[in-house]
């Protein structure tokens, strides 16, 4: 708790705080944190209740990649690079929707570790859909109604976008895999350039799960291949978390209020089948299934 924690206001079981603590500990607190508006900012940076034990800046919702790039360049200009790494903690909305400056950071390859804390919607403001909300999820802006059953689009593939920019290190992880987070952050810290790590972070309130179910639900996202855990260096796939007995997506979906309608609405079956197709495609793409 040296680098993050004292006084933060996250919900019990919040995936974000697990991820953040592990990132900061992997870097031994030698880092500068840039954080856009969102859940993490609200729970950690109220004036007088700052929970950060590392230098921290919150500027706006839509500019964190540029702010981090500016810190990184300033440290270079002033010969202070040894002080620490520049790390972004951004939500999925601030990354995949309104994060206008992310492509510039990738393009110029600023020395930044960009961590996307993916809880799959705007949870801070009460669960509105983002570009990383998956198919079928009921949010307050993609509600379940007579003609619509939650989000009808796909989850944006930020991994492909990061790779297309030529990012030297791109990985996914999950708040339920602390050792994996630490290893990947340490690896990223040794690589120069704009790194991207997307960490799946269960959200108890938005997803409609109990705090004690966080690890189970987080693991099921991996075990169904809905959230492949992968790692690329210089565009080359390095590691994939393989599965012996991949589970059907229903096991993951049925535990969460955000997908409950898929099991009660007669049209829900079709959407579950589509979600299963997405999981199957992920498994095929990354060769996730171990041969029996």
């Amino acid at each position: 708790m040296r680098f993050f924690g004292r006084g933060h206001g996250a919900c019990p079981g919040c995936g974000l705080t697990i991820a953040v603590r592990n990132v900061l500990e992997a870097l031994e607190g030698k880092c500068f944190v840039a954080n856009p508006t969102g859940c993490l900012e609200i729970i950690s940076s109220q004036y007088g209740k700052n929970a950060w034990g590392v230098p921290y800046i919150h500027s706006l919702f839509d500019n964190v990649a540029a702010v981090a790039s500016g810190i990184s360049e300033a440290l270079k200009a002033m010969g202070r690079e040894d002080e620490g790494k520049v790390v972004v903690f951004a939500g999925d909305g601030a990354t995949a929707d309104i994060g206008l400056t992310l492509h510039g950071m990738f393009d110029r390859n600023h020395d930044v570790i960009y961590i996307c804390l993916d809880n799959e919607a705007y949870q801070n403001t009460g669960h509105q859909q983002s570009a990383l909300t998956p198919l079928g999820e009921a949010t307050t802006t993609t509600p379940v109604g007579k003609i619509m059953l939650g989000k009808m689009g796909r989850k944006k593939d930020m991994i492909a976008i990061a790779l297309a920019h030529g990012s030297p290190y791109v990985a996914t992880s999950s708040a339920v895999l602390p050792a994996d987070i630490r290893r990947k952050v340490k690896k990223a810290a040794g690589i120069v350039g704009a790194k991207y790590i997307q960490i799946h972070c269960p959200c108890v309130t938005g997803w409609g799960i109990d705090g004690k179910e966080v690890v189970k639900v987080g693991n099921l996202a991996i075990e169904t291949a809905l959230y492949p855990i992968v790692e690329f260096e210089n565009g080359k796939l390095l590691t994939v978390r393989k599965l012996k007995d991949r589970k059907p997506v229903e096991e993951y979906l049925k535990l969460q209020r955000r997908f409950r309608h898929l099991f009660t609405n007669p049209e829900g079956k079709k959407i579950i089948a589509e979600i299963q197709r997405i999981a199957d495609a992920n498994a095929l793409k990354y060769n996730i299934d171990l041969k029996k």
Binding site: A66, V67, S69, G70, I71, E73, M78, L100
Partner: peptide, 14 residues
């Protein structure tokens, strides 16, 4: 927008 944002980070870093 990005230019000003980069300067916010840089200026905050001194």
């Amino acid at each position: 927008f990005a230019a000003a944002s980069i300067l916010v980070g840089a200026s905050a870093a001194g």
